[in-house]
């Protein structure tokens, strides 16, 4: 497949514990999929497998050539300035200019020479996004990227990610346990439970998403799939 993801019968066990159990998933080129699930449902293992960090032990996985990951912690190298972090692993004489352009896209043109430890949490995460986007990925994976940000910063990041996704047109897999985040950003929400897909909810509401009746219905469906339906 060129731009999409195809996962067939993916299985993974740690000891006797089956983390992924015959998982099937398809992501079309340019599609935004939000992956939900409780802790231990296999979300992270799936993402790590797609990123090539974990081996495929059962089943088959096909991903595009260009894959980029944004982790929950920004994972910037503290000893490299912001620009050099974004440039890491790029070659070509224009690498610096490309890095600066990517940082401009995430609104950090003024921080290119900063040391990572002087950035705020939101800024560091935006550098992480710039570092992913500068590689022009066909698949962008985001592993709970906004979990440790404050609520206002998170809202701003949602708008940023949506804008960048539309501009670059890459497929996105967003791992999250924030139901509202999934409803705000996804073309489709997928709920994972004990290593299998439990619920798939297509989200066809108009963008930018508003908190209307459809949103509330989607919220109910997803919360029930996550076994917290009664709590709300």
């Amino acid at each position: 497949m060129s731009g999409g993801v195809l996962v067939e019968g993916l299985g993974r066990a740690f000891g006797g514990n089956r983390v992924l159990d015959g998982l099937d998933l398809q992501i079309r080129p340019g599609e935004f999929v939000a992956l939900l699930g409780r802790s231990g449902s296999g979300k992270t293992t799936l993402l790590r497998t797609l990123a090539g960090l974990d081996p495929v032990e059962e089943g088959a996985v096909s991903v595009p050539d260009q894959v980029a990951v944004v982790f929950q912690e920004s994972r910037l190298l503290p000893w490299k300035r912001v620009r050099d972090n974004v440039m890491l692993g790029l070659d070509g004489a224009d690498a610096g200019a490309r890095a600066e352009a990517a940082l401009g896209e995430v609104g950090l043109a003024h921080r290119v020479d900063a040391w990572p430890l002087t950035l705020s949490g939101g800024e560091a995460q935006r550098v992480g996004i710039a570092r992913a986007l500068v590689r022009a990925p066909h698949l962008l994976m985001l592993d709970e990227p906004f979990a440790s940000l404050d609520a206002l910063t998170r809202l701003r990041m949602h708008a940023l990610v949506e804008r960048l996704w539309r501009k670059h047109g890459c497929a996105v897999l967003l791992v999250t346990h924030d139901v509202d985040e999934a409803l705000t950003l996804g073309d489709r929400a997928v709920v994972l439970d004990r290593g299998r897909i439990r619920t798939v909810l297509p989200l066809e509401m108009e963008r930018p998403r508003r908190h209307d009746a459809d949103f509330a219905r989607g919220r109910q469906v997803l919360l029930e799939a996550l076994d917290v339906g009664e709590a709300v």
Binding site: L77, G89, R135
Partner: peptide
């Protein structure tokens, strides 16, 4: 190890990992 993993997702070669991550990290 998270930084080493990050280096892998960026497709760094072993030499690049040593040069950009291991040595400066242990400096």
């Amino acid at each position: 190890p998270k930084l080493l993993e990050m280096g892998r997702t960026l497709g760094l070669s072993r030499m690049a990992v040593i040069r950009h991550i291991v040595l400066p990290g242990a400096l």
